[in-house]
Amino acid sequence: MHLVCPAGNLPALQAAIDAGADAVYAGFRDQTNARAFPGLNFSDEELRQGIAYAHARGRKVYLALNTYPDSARLALWQATVDKAASFGCDAIIAAEMAVLDYASRSYPQLARHLSVQGSATTAPALRYMHERFGIERAVLPRVLSIQQVERLCEQSPVPLEVFAFGSLCIMVEGRCQLSSYVTGASPNRHGVCSPAHFVRWDEHPDGGRSVRLNQVLIDRFGQSEPAGYPTVCKGRFVVGDETFHALEEPTSLNTLELLPRLAQAGVAALKIEGRQRGVAYVASVTRTWRDALDRYRASPQHWSAKPTWQQALSQHAEGHQTTLGPYHRNWH
């Protein structure tokens, strides 16, 4: 299994490569990718440097081009495909049909991976994308159980990549409008979820804090309570008489203990989420998974998840909590 790691900027890209990533994924500094955050992503020159750095070490760079252009902006996405080809990216990760169609016609030799944003969860959906646009790999949305992933590996026309670690989108990727319902800005169209300029923190006299997204109260925290980033899906709300994390707790996905099953199922690549995270996260999480994968390769029969690996990963998890998420039936 290949290890695919996030690169929010050039130092993170280098850190991921140095820590043993087989491939990194990165985006340009605009709305063509799903982490269009201020201060993040690559200029043309930085991406060229990043590709040179990776290629000199025999590793790959994938370009995240995974948002949905409307008609008026399609030309920018097409121009970004042109850049991916001319810079020598090893693949584009795309979700939108017009982008995939343009890439497959203009640069048939440039590999196309279906992004998680493409919401393909079944063999027929994957077959559509394969027949139509010649995708070579697909990233699965974080909705399937491990049994469903195993079955899909048998039936899929293309190798599959699954999320191994990182922030957990609770909704089917590419099908979530919670951010745009509140702010007007969506992951699909603008590459952002709950953008920071809509976030307002208020301090209370009792030492507590409340956080609003475009004026909608997402949560309140007591003085000593850890406070996470206010995406709608991780807020506390009132349903019936109960106030609780009605959609999801702030927690991260961690599939380390499933590594043998994912490998035996024939999963082609494991993806680490977190282009918005810093160099320390990328280096530590990449190193941990590299070690785990290498040990598995060396001795699959004797592999077990080491406590030190789990500790290292927990330190980088949201709220220091991890979950098997949808891979585990009880989570549903």
Partner: peptide, 21 residues
């Protein structure tokens, strides 16, 4: 009412504290 999001998780079951299965 506009459909905004879909998940593997059942939020009704979660709110009523029952397992999805």
């Amino acid at each position: 009412r506009l459909p905004l999001a879909y998940s593997a998780r059942c939020f009704t079951a979660r709110a009523l504290d029952v397992a999805k299965d």
